[in-house]
Design a protein around this nucleic acid. Structure first.
Lengths: 365, 365
DNA sequence: CTGAAAGCGCTAACAG
DNA sequence: CTGTTAGCGCTTTCAG
């Protein structure tokens, strides 16, 4: 049996749509009283409150969030948005699952909605990825993906005062709220390690062409060279898009120069085969005439059995911690911004069993 | 440089918050003209339109969804909600990734928001999992998880006329919009197969205690017994909660009866070790003194090397197809409801390499 | 082509 | 303890 609409007659076009006025009419009180009951405010007699609650339950009334959002700033939804088109910088399945799990644990479980803006670039090529905030769809958000050097949206988000968390940093906004890994240090560690092993011309496969993480890698690389007194050649750095098929080409290009005797894979693709393929095309063999340092997001994992060392970047761990902090900010338990910067760790390759290549979130068939 | 608020002075409490009126003031036109530009309506001169668009871009104005939602029913967000507490009926990682990927492909990619209500049971123990719709947070939704026999929410969603898709069916609402697998047929096939092999007392591990899928499994089991003329014993059916540790207990209990010579695992846990463990506790050995038929969600997979047959349930495939249909309904290309019912397929065990146990979405540490 | 007025459902502020 | 009024930012309707 369906209960009919309270009969305001105007009905936003939809049947079975109850408003506060309808409930008020049924309960013979004013809308404000309903509002008080719903928001658990003082000043309603126990009997009225119960009567109202009964009616609300009976008809299944739920307040209209849109209308509510026009008055105050209720915090009942957190967003996740991407700062670059998914096609250019795909999320890996591993990172996404961790981020999603953590959003569930700290927000979803307690009834907060979690809203994804998966392609803010669809309608607006410049990608106003903060739109969910401006639209009042959510009142806090996680920003996944790398930030472009000239990103303006992040500045707006920062200034607007919403709780937010970027999973990257940005020079042009050093006070940004972030949870990430010290890529500068990771690059410095990797380069220093190879220099100490006697290499002087070291190639580097970077990730995220055109974005800030590339800058961080360069800075660490440069620092290690500077400290060693050796001369650095910027031509040995090659950005590639994550998840692209560009790795073999990049490795090939770098190793075609016979003076290059070592290479660092910072791409995060965790794709040993592409590295091998690139070396092969250049007529080189990893661990024989080229030494490799590979980056990974899994603790103590082996990306490539030929690598002489690996660097673990606890990106997932940073994201998980960051979301916890964001949650506390969301509930005004702390003030923003969040600043979590985990350190990378270099270790000599502990075994030969390689982990499988990182899978993009939408690689599934 | 930040541009200051247009100065309506009232400012919903937040700085840098632009309204249509602000844009109108700047452009020296009325708010309605701004509205026309935003909604790509006719009746604005090219020059005005451009001027307005420039201002909008300059200040980064985005219309307030809440306010918009109070008039029409724009469709710019799709929801996903769960019909049972996540703790009772966890989503597997596999299903979730497929559902999420498909939501991305058909909705997210084109700029539609995707909003998750991960625990409608947090604030309301009865679980009004349709709340996102009533709140006008989203205008269509996917309902994950099994439906309870006495579920009322699904009736309300159905009657409200929103596009929706349940990933289960329900007897009390046969016209529900669904995309799932024929569990009745899967149970019938499994039972018939074992009866034909000469078994007369067959145990069955069910899933989702207290929910409708259990009913469907019973129905198929019963149908096979009826067709064979054998007598059925309802005591051999044991529901377990998915993902729980109850499987060994249930197997043990069933196999403690020495007249039981076969067992069907319909739980979907894909957990060979738990089945073995249960048999062991009952002093039995799979494939020696008990025959097993195991259900799986992966095509041609081997859940247990000891099984004499497997039944593949294309649940993921149904969900993916269903979301495509939901998308067409969302855009009024078709009328609802969606009715996708894929058939299970029984195959004799093709190999011995077992797939790994299904992982819950939030099992990650 | 453009604007004025009314009102969506709710809540803050102020009266009783 | 309860009600009245006004107004959030937008879109619909009707008038220019």
């Amino acid at each position: 049996m369906t209960i009919e609409n309270g009969g305001n007659g105007k009905g936003g076009g939809r049947q079975g749509h109850w408003t506060m006025q309808d409930i008020a009419d049924r309960a013979h009180v004013s809308p404000k009283t309903i509002s008080r009951v719903i928001n658990e405010e003082q000043g309603v007699s126990e009997s009225t409150r119960e009567r109202v609650l009964d009616i609300i339950k009976e008809v299944g009334y739920v307040p209209h969030t849109g209308a509510r959002s026009m008055r105050g700033n209720r915090r009942d939804c957190v967003g996740l948005t991407v700062s670059a088109p998914m096609s250019e910088v795909p999320l890996t399945e591993d990172l996404f699952l961790r981020v999603f799990s953590q959003l569930y644990r700290v927000f979803g479980k307690q009834g907060t909605f979690v809203c994804f803006d998966l392609n803010p670039f669809a309608s607006d090529p410049t990608g106003n990825y903060g739109r969910g905030l401006w639209e009042h769809r959510y009142s806090a958000c996680v920003i996944c993906g790398p930030l472009a050097e000239d990103d303006e949206v992040i500045h707006r988000v920062h200034e607007a005062g919403f709780p937010y968390l970027a999973l990257s940093r940005l020079d042009t906004l050093p006070e940004v709220s972030y949870a990430t890994v010290d890529y500068v240090e990771a690059a410095r560690l990797s380069t220093e390690f190879l220099i100490k092993r006697g290499h002087s011309r070291i190639g580097m496969i970077q990730g995220f062409k055109g974005f800030h993480p590339t800058v961080e890698r360069e800075r660490g690389y440069e620092a290690a060279y500077k400290a060693s007194g050796l001369e650095m050649d910027a031509g040995l750095l090659r950005p590639v898009n994550f998840g692209s098929e560009e790795i073999p080409d990049a490795v090939h290009a770098i190793l075609s120069d016979p003076t290059v005797t070592a290479i660092i894979d910072t791409s995060g693709a965790e794709d040993a085969e592409s590295l091998r393929e690139g070396a092969r095309r250049a007529g080189r063999t990893l661990s024989e005439d080229v030494e490799l340092v590979a980056w990974t997001y899994t603790q103590d994992a082996v990306v490539s059995a030929e690598a002489c060392a690996h660097v673990w970047l606890p990106v997932w761990e940073a994201a998980v911690q960051g979301i916890s902090e964001l949650h506390r900010w969301f509930h005004d338990e702390i003030e923003g911004p969040v600043t979590i910067l985990l350190s990378p760790r270099l270790y000599e390759t502990p075994g030969t069993e390689e982990i499988s290549k990182a899978r993009g979130l939408f690689d599934l068939t």
